[in-house]
């Protein structure tokens, strides 16, 4: 939907099992900047073209997966409005105090029907060296690695994706942009937008709750995707699939894995969404093309490999 109260996915906190290797991956290979390291060992990173303090948080742990995905909202009044709507929908919320993450103000936390934890927040410090604003150059320092522009979205696996889509559309102003449906109307995958992006979050139906499929970084174009593939090959980063294209969103893509097995995506060139656009639907028998447009079929890993 045209941006109203929820602006965008602001940050995601991932569990990693080896911080040194994870920093080589996220900082040197993908090319994020390390902004800060917390006393508890969490490392905060951001992409080059992001103004806010951080968009990726790595937490040392003995498992992989996602702790929380957080959405930035317009202002404090919007945060209150959204909280009221969650309560009216019967959703229990929890207050996360300012400062729990470096640079981030108060957050409102809830668990979606798929078991995933989400936060909403309005306040976050600006990054010390964000994009230029006065006679701005295209970048302050030339980008490294895969030259990520921003953290773009997450795709999550869980059981009650109908409940999650209802919550995001009815309480948070998201729209169903593109979905995969069986003949009886069961939604297998739903791509939801709170902006003019093709998706700000997506859910795929899966037996287990709370699983993480990937977090995605926006790159400039198809050439940048190709260069990212060169880097993955040069540095032996495990590639899941790609470079290829999604039918859904039309995005050019590579899926690959971080050193803890969390899937990452580099992504470029999907369409714009406006609130007057009709929902786009793929039938379940075309799911292969919906996900991997050129291959026309899912690889073995798409459904089963999650953290």
């Amino acid at each position: 939907m045209a941006v109203v109260d929820v602006l965008r996915p602001g940050f995601v906190q991932l569990r990693v099992m080896d911080m040194a290797q994870s920093l080589t991956h996220y900082r040197d290979r993908i090319g994020l900047d390390v902004v800060a390291t917390g006393a508890d060992g969490r490392v905060y990173l951001k992409a080059d073209d992001e103004f806010d303090h951080h968009s990726i948080v790595l937490r040392p742990a003995d498992t992989a997966g996602m702790d929380v995905c957080a959405f930035k909202v317009l202002d404090d009044a919007a945060l209150d409005r959204l909280t009221d709507r969650l309560h009216a929908h019967g959703v229990v919320t929890q207050a996360i105090p300012a400062g729990e993450q470096l640079g981030v103000g108060r957050r409102v936390r809830f668990t979606a029907p798929t078991g995933h934890v989400f936060d909403l927040y309005a306040d976050i410090e600006r990054a010390p060296a964000g994009p230029m604003t006065d006679n701005p150059h295209v970048w302050r320092h030339e980008p490294r690695g895969m030259a990520p522009i921003r953290f773009d979205h997450v795709l999550l696996y869980g059981d009650d994706i109908d409940g999650a889509a209802d919550l995001f559309t009815q309480c948070l102003g998201f729209r169903r942009v593109e979905e995969v449906e069986t003949p009886d109307g069961t939604v297998l995958a739903t791509f939801l937008s709170c902006s003019t992006k093709s998706h700000d979050i997506a859910f795929v139906r899966h037996a287990e709750k709370g699983k993480f499929h990937h977090c995605s970084f926006l790159l400039e174009d198809w050439n940048a995707i190709g260069r990212a593939a060169d880097l993955m090959t040069r540095y032996e980063i495990p590639i899941d699939i790609g470079p290829t294209r999604h039918g859904i969103s039309r995005g050019r893509t590579i899926y690959f894995f971080d050193p803890s097995g969390n899937r990452n995506e580099v992504f470029a060139g999907s369409y714009d969404h406006y609130p007057d656009h009709p929902r786009r639907v793929w039938s379940a028998d075309q799911v292969g093309r919906a996900i991997f447009y050129y291959e026309g079929e899912l690889n073995d890993r798409f459904m089963g490999v999650v953290t």
């Binding site: 099992m17 498992t63 992989a64 894995f257 803890s260 089963g304």
Partner: peptide, 12 residues
């Protein structure tokens, strides 16, 4: 034996 993440995270 499936090949998944090859990084110790997915368990397959």
């Amino acid at each position: 034996v499936p090949v998944g993440c090859r990084s110790g995270g997915c368990g397959v």
